[in-house]
Design a protein around this nucleic acid. Structure first.
Lengths: 189, 189
DNA sequence: TGCACAAACCTAAAGGCTTTAGGCAACCGA
DNA sequence: TCGGTTGCCTAAAGCCTTTAGGTTTGTGCA
């Protein structure tokens, strides 16, 4: 009965890896316990249950994405910053589909993952600094960008763009250019 | 042992109702069997399994949305058509959150739900007729609109817009106006 | 009318996931 | 080194999925 050294954090990180390997919705306390060579019930000393586990994985993903985004945005503005942020999300989703799926998990209010969400909002707001938008247009624009990123990546990952041309890789930069030009002329619309 | 009259179709429709009541991911063969007052195993004569059941519910939702969209688009063009299509999706999602969630279910290639997806693409293409876009811009625009609709509704339903002003109801029409103006000037971007 | 066959629904059972309760053992501080 | 806390274990109940095989119901044809 050697101790493995489980902690909520290690479970969440291992869960994130597992999600990338077998898909987020296949991640279960059982599968995770198996991976640690431990009985399922042992996990319940560290995590409140399956929902708690999934929420923690979501948080891992949201934090990782925000870290990458913050790094990518440093020293960039305008079109450059927009493309950088968009690229971070899309690349992350392609590298880590399970984690990305986790980041979409409905987490309940009061959870620390809500703060991670706020961080993403602020990063998007930072991108918009280059476009000089006043409220409420700025909030509208944040919501638009969030919608496009989430929406495009979700559809692409789901294969919706796989069987038509042009390739999804080609649409993406053109759509970002269009958004850039939209943001530059937002007030005139 | 009165026969209830199960069919794949009735199961799918009842599953759609159940999804709106308890949430799509809570829909199970068990819950559905309970609702029909029937043993679980009986369902397996009509659906291949849980995945098949969920796919059929997804199809019900996609078809219903496409029907509504087709009706809403009749006789409309340009900005009017854009708003009409967007409104159909958003209203449907708010009236039937479970069904809407079902419509996002990853259905496997070859399934008839793929055709339903194509129908939505064509409806979006119809909206774009009012904007005179050539390929590949037209496909880009279809993908952009799909992304915004899916993305915005998903975030809104998840509560991402609930705790900031302006209200989500106010951002939505302004975002649609911005998209309209983007589409009108797409080639110039 | 009556019979035969197909379909609809049933019971039984195996296997997996979640969660709770209670027990033993390993580690840490005194 | 000893006591307590914590980490992991066994046991067990409850729910979901899926398969196998039985029985009833209803329909169509003679």
């Amino acid at each position: 009965m050697a101790r493995v050294g489980l902690t909520p954090d290690r479970l969440a990180r291992a869960g994130a890896e597992l999600a990338d390997e077998i898909g987020f919705d296949q991640v279960s306390a059982s599968a995770l316990a198996r991976r640690f060579g431990v009985q399922v019930a042992s996990l319940y000393a560290h995590v409140r249950g399956a929902h708690d586990l999934r929420s923690r994985i979501a948080q891992v993903a949201l934090d990782e994405m925000a870290d990458r985004a913050a790094e990518a945005l440093a020293g960039r503005a305008g079109h450059d910053a927009l493309v950088a942020l968009a690229t971070v999300y899309r690349d992350y989703a392609r590298e880590h589909p399970g984690r990305y799926a986790a980041s979409q998990y409905r987490v309940d209010p009061g959870s620390p993952a809500v703060d991670a969400g706020r961080r993403h909002t602020e990063l998007t707001r930072a991108v918009l600094r280059g476009y000089n938008l006043d409220e409420p247009a700025q909030t509208d624009a944040i919501r638009l960008l969030g919608s496009v990123f989430n929406g495009y990546i979700g559809l692409e990952l789901g294969g919706s763009f796989a069987h038509s041309s042009p390739a999804s890789d080609e649409s993406w930069p053109r759509i970002l250019d269009a958004l850039d030009s939209l943001l530059r002329s937002w007030t005139k619309s």
